[in-house]
């Protein structure tokens, strides 16, 4: 995907991004650039604005100010060109919805189908491959509500895979998940990034971060630190992120 010689293209970029709810800022003045092949961890306390930042980067909420580019495109255009995949938190999904695992993964192909959303052979193949890759082929006929926590996460990761996007945003992919699934998700993300995609994932799993993230973003409404994991993921920075009392306005 990359040409040798030229620097890797910018997959995800934000400039002075600010999002406010009812005038109260949830994310303030965040700027970042993630090149192709980058796997970045997003770390912060509950309420630090991680989900808000992910949603603003994905173009799901309009920022109060600042801008976002996905593959150099405005979010709305990047969405239409299937550049962006979003894996939601488990709490945001209606697990009683009457839909099978295979159909959830097929939703990842909708943007590439005709207007009536009739799957073609290429769509079916992509779905089966994605199911295979997250080891869910044998559960494809189950309703999503019948899956365990780890299996549910893998189903939504498979949807993102089937979508063949270049930028993946994942909100708490490791929460409520068994260890083998954590390993599987990390392996799949690494393969994707090695192939030129970029992933940004919010997580509370601090121990896992140095094992697979090459970049880390520490957030507490404002960006506290951002850079290569070795430089940024330090005791001192983590204390600033989690240890300090919340600053008074």
């Amino acid at each position: 995907m990359q040409q040798t010689g030229s620097p890797p293209p910018e997959r995800l970029a934000a400039r002075a991004l600010t999002v406010a709810y009812d005038g109260v800022p949830a994310v303030e003045q965040v700027s970042l650039i993630l090149p192709a092949g980058c796997l970045c961890g997003l770390v912060g306390m509950n309420g630090a604005g991680k989900t808000t930042l992910l949603r603003a980067l994905g173009g799901f909420i309009a920022p109060g100010s600042g801008s976002v580019r996905i593959d150099g495109l405005p979010p709305a255009l990047a969405q239409r060109r299937q550049r962006l995949a979003y894996v939601p938190q488990s709490e945001q999904v209606d697990w009683d919805f009457p839909i099978r695992v295979r159909d959830v993964v097929m939703l990842g192909r909708y943007g590439r189908m005709n207007l009536l959303r009739w799957p073609a052979a290429v769509d079916r193949r992509a779905v089966e491959q994605a199911l295979e890759r997250v080891d869910l082929s044998n559960l494809a006929e189950r309703p999503i509500g019948a899956l365990s926590g780890g299996q549910r996460k893998r189903a939504f990761l498979a949807r993102a895979l089937a979508q063949e996007a270049t930028v993946l945003l994942l909100d708490e992919p490791f929460t409520g998940v068994d260890l083998p699934t954590v390993q599987l998700i990390i392996t799949v993300l690494r393969e994707l990034c090695a192939a030129g995609a970029t992933a940004l994932l919010a997580t509370h799993d601090l121990e896992a971060i140095p094992t697979f993230c090459d970049r880390v973003l520490l957030l507490n409404r404002r960006l506290l630190a951002f850079g290569p994991t070795g430089e940024v993921f330090t005791q001192a920075n983590l204390l600033r992120t989690f240890g300090a009392a919340p600053a008074l306005p």
Binding site: R55, G58, G59, F60, A76, Q79, R80, R81, Q82, L84, A85, Y86, P88, Q92, V93, D94, F97, I99, L107, G108, Y110, G111, L115, L116, R117, R159, Q163
Partner: peptide, 22 residues
């Protein structure tokens, strides 16, 4: 008949619907 599948996706996961450009 024509838009039912998109509407179903909208009911299930509006965020994903947005992310694929609907």
């Amino acid at each position: 008949l024509v838009r039912g599948r998109d509407l179903l996706l909208f009911c299930f996961d509006p965020c994903h619907a947005r992310s694929i450009g609907l």
